Simulated assay, not measured.
Amino acid sequence: MNNFPSQEKVIKCVIDGITTAKNNFTFWTADELYLSYAPPRFLTIHVSQEIAKLNNAPEIFIDATIADILRCSLPSRDTFREFMKQRYLTQDVLCLTLDERFEHKSDNDSISRVIMSLKNGVRNVKEEYKYEIEKICKMLYRNKLEDSTLDYGIFAFYLDISSSARKKSEQRIKEITESFDKIVNSFENLQSKLEGGKINIIPNIGEWAVCCYIIEPKFK
């Protein structure tokens, strides 16, 4: 079994992947369009490619269902339905799931370690983003570390605004982060932090930034 990549390396891959997506889309459209106009899964594919470059790359799954992730992370693989019922989790998908890479003996022995939601064109606090944060929290929260193999979750997003926008990127990121913090703080044994967030200014055009909001158990 390969050593699973560190959180630091995974976060760097996420930020680098979204930054590459921005640079590619800008070049492909001859500077005509912001990355926020890119098609669905554009960020997901670029982030996946960056993670796949790691020497100890994990297995990468796109749009895995909550049920499948829980089945591959709970101590007992047949308890995911009850877990979802108790946590009021409805069937949905996560943009990316990172599993341990090893030689499988069956199609039912995967081990999920990291879950991610990737959002493009995030500019303000929205219910759909808060829903994603709550979903990640419900999947990560537990009383004992050994109750799940999930190490942490990431809500990564790309933000861009025009230079004429009244509210600048720094304030937008602050408000988005604060709204997420309120949700995470409502769960016992969870903590969060923001990585990235460097604001890039394009003179007379606008600003853009890439952020990673990480949620993880406190007793990890």
Rank of each mutant, 00 (worst) to 15 (best):
N24S: 11
R142C: 12
D99I: 01
N2R: 10
Y37D: 12
P58F: 01
R172G: 10
D68F: 09
K182L: 13
Q171H: 00
T177V: 10
A165W: 04
S73P: 10
E175R: 00
I214R: 01
L118P: 12
L140K: 07
K130C: 14
E216N: 00
V125G: 01
L145D: 09
R166W: 04
N124D: 15
L194Q: 12
S148H: 01
R77P: 11
S169N: 05
N120Y: 06
L74F: 06
T97K: 03
K144S: 14
I215G: 05
T79L: 07
T44V: 12
H46D: 06
A209C: 15
E8W: 00
C211I: 03
Y34F: 10
G197D: 13
T177F: 02
F4N: 04
S112G: 08
F4G: 03
M116P: 09
L118W: 02
N204S: 08
V47W: 01
R87A: 11
R77F: 11
V184R: 07
Y141D: 02
T44Y: 03
N200M: 13
N204M: 03
S162K: 08
S106K: 12
A57T: 00
K12N: 13
T79Y: 10
L35E: 02
N23C: 05
S162G: 12
E50L: 07
K135C: 02
K105R: 15
S6G: 01
I66E: 03
M139K: 03
W208N: 13
L74S: 09
K126H: 12
C13Q: 00
L35C: 11
S169D: 09
L145G: 01
A30E: 13
I18T: 03
I111C: 14
K193L: 10
F155D: 01
D181N: 13
N55L: 14
S106E: 11
R87W: 03
F80Q: 07
G206I: 09
A38Q: 02
R172T: 08
T65L: 08
P203N: 06
K53M: 04
C72Q: 07
T19I: 02
D160H: 06
N23T: 14
I60A: 01
N108I: 01
K135F: 07
T44Q: 03
K9I: 05
K53W: 02
K105L: 15
K12A: 10
S162F: 08
F4P: 04
Y129I: 09
K182Y: 04
F80D: 05
E82R: 14
A156H: 06
F102H: 09
D181E: 06
D68A: 14
E170I: 09
S112M: 05
S117H: 12
F27E: 06
Y129P: 00
S48H: 00
Y34V: 01
N2T: 03
I45S: 05
K119I: 10
K182R: 13
Y158W: 14
F155V: 12
P75E: 08
P58S: 01
K220E: 06
A52T: 05
T90C: 11
R41N: 13
I133T: 04
G196M: 12
G17P: 11
N200V: 15
G206Y: 01
I205N: 08
E134I: 00
D107H: 10
R172Q: 14
I60Y: 01
M1R: 12
